[in-house]
Every structure is written in structure tokens, then in C-alpha cells.
């Protein structure tokens, strides 16, 4: 059987890729994609921990399902806000959205 640590390393790597995407990408959609990657890394973590450490406790599965649902809600709101922004400014490049500063 694949050891637990492999899953955790995969999740950590995916989380870092997502975080890098959020911090380094300029396009708002790409930033949202980065956040999705981070949430998926979280899900891998939860499911792996659940399966290997405490499979009779259903809470781990429930946790993963709820993370899905919330991630979907967050993206729906995020895309709506990005569309509203795009209509006003004709851009979704994060650096050009700088009306508010200091």
C-alpha cells in the first residue's frame, strides 16, 4: 500500500503550487485557479488522513464534501465579482485594478 506520507507530500506540493499561483499570477482568473488548487490540496490531506488514521470516523469524509461545496460557492461569487469588475474596467489584470491604495 502507498504510504500516507506520499499523499501528504503530494498535497503539500499542490498547496505550494496553488499559493505560488495566487501570489505570482496577474490574471484574476488564474488567481482563482490557484485558490482552487490550494483547496484541492486540503481535500487530499483530509481524505488521506481519514483513510489512514481513523477510517471509522465519518467526519473526515464529511469535511471533504463540505470543502467542495464551499469552494464551489466561493468560485461562483468570485467569478460574478470578476465579471462586474471586467464590465467597469475592461481588465482583470490584478495590477491594473489599483484605484484604491494607501
Amino acid at each position: 500500500m502507498i504510504p500516507l506520507s506520499w499523499y501528504l507530500i503530494l498535497a503539500a506540493a499542490m498547496f505550494c503550487v496553488g499559493l505560488y499561483g495566487v501570489l505570482a499570477r496577474r490574471n484574476a482568473i488564474a488567481i482563482l485557479l490557484g485558490i482552487e488548487l490550494m483547496l484541492n490540496a486540503v481535500n487530499i490531506n483530509v481524505v488521506a488522513f481519514w483513510r489512514y488514521l481513523n477510517p471509522e470516523n465519518i467526519a473526515g469524509q464529511a469535511f471533504a464534501l463540505i470543502v467542495f461545496a464551499v469552494a464551489a460557492a466561493e468560485v461562483a461569487v468570485g467569478l460574478a465579482l470578476i465579471i462586474a469588475l471586467y464590465r467597469r474596467r475592461n481588465t482583470i489584470v490584478a495590477e491594473e485594478i489599483d484605484l484604491l491604495k494607501w
Binding site: 484574476a28 482563482l32 465579482l81 470578476i82 469588475l85 485594478i97 484604491l100
Partner: peptide, 8 residues
């Protein structure tokens, strides 16, 4: 812009 930044 405010909503967008808050969300991200």
C-alpha cells in the same frame, strides 16, 4: 474593486 480584493 473592493469586493474583488476582499474575495481574493
Amino acid at each position: 474593486e473592493s469586493g474583488f480584493k476582499y474575495l481574493l
